[in-house]
C-alpha cells in the first residue's frame, strides 16, 4: 500500500448550502470511485475539516457520476452575508478535501 493525496484520484468542487458547505468529490476512474467510497468516510472528512466544520457531516454516494457529496454543516461562520470569514461560501473547501491522504494499493494509477 502507499499513501496518496485525494488529488491523485479525484477532482472536486464546493459551494455554500446555508451555513454549511457542500463538497463534491469525483473520482477519475471506476477503481478510484471504489477507493474513495471505501476510504473517504464521514468520520475522516469531519476530522480533516476539524478546524473548519463545527457541525455534522452528511455523505451521499452518486455512483453514476463516480462521486461523493459531503455537506459540512456549520462551516461558514454564519454563512452568506452574515459571515465575517474570507471564504464565507465554502468555495475553497473542495480544494481542501483534495489534500486528504488515503491508502491505495501500490500498483494504483488514477
Amino acid at each position: 500500500m502507499k499513501r496518496v493525496k485525494l488529488a491523485e484520484i479525484a477532482h472536486a468542487r464546493s459551494g455554500d448550502k446555508g451555513d454549511g458547505s457542500n463538497v463534491g468529490l469525483i473520482a477519475y476512474s471506476d477503481r478510484g470511485f471504489e477507493l474513495i467510497a471505501r476510504e473517504v468516510t464521514v468520520e475522516r472528512v469531519k476530522a480533516h475539516f476539524g478546524k473548519i466544520c463545527l457541525g455534522e457531516v452528511d455523505r451521499y454516494e452518486i455512483p453514476n457520476l463516480r462521486a461523493l457529496n459531503f455537506i459540512l454543516h456549520d462551516s461558514l461562520g454564519g454563512g452568506g452575508t452574515e459571515s465575517l470569514k474570507t471564504d464565507a461560501q465554502g468555495k475553497t473547501h473542495g480544494m481542501g478535501l483534495l489534500e486528504m491522504e488515503i491508502e491505495v494499493p501500490e500498483n494504483f494509477v488514477r
Binding site: 472536486a12 468542487r13 457542500n22 452518486i62 457520476l65 457529496n69
Partner: peptide
C-alpha cells in the same frame, strides 16, 4: 460533473417548484 455537484444537497431529491430531479440517474 463538477458543476452537477455544485451546491448539491441530497442528489436524489433536487427540489424545484416544477419537479423533483434525481441526480443519481444522470
Amino acid at each position: 460533473s463538477e458543476q452537477l455537484l455544485y451546491e448539491m444537497g441530497d442528489p436524489q431529491n433536487y427540489i424545484t417548484p416544477d419537479c423533483v430531479a434525481d441526480f443519481s440517474t444522470i
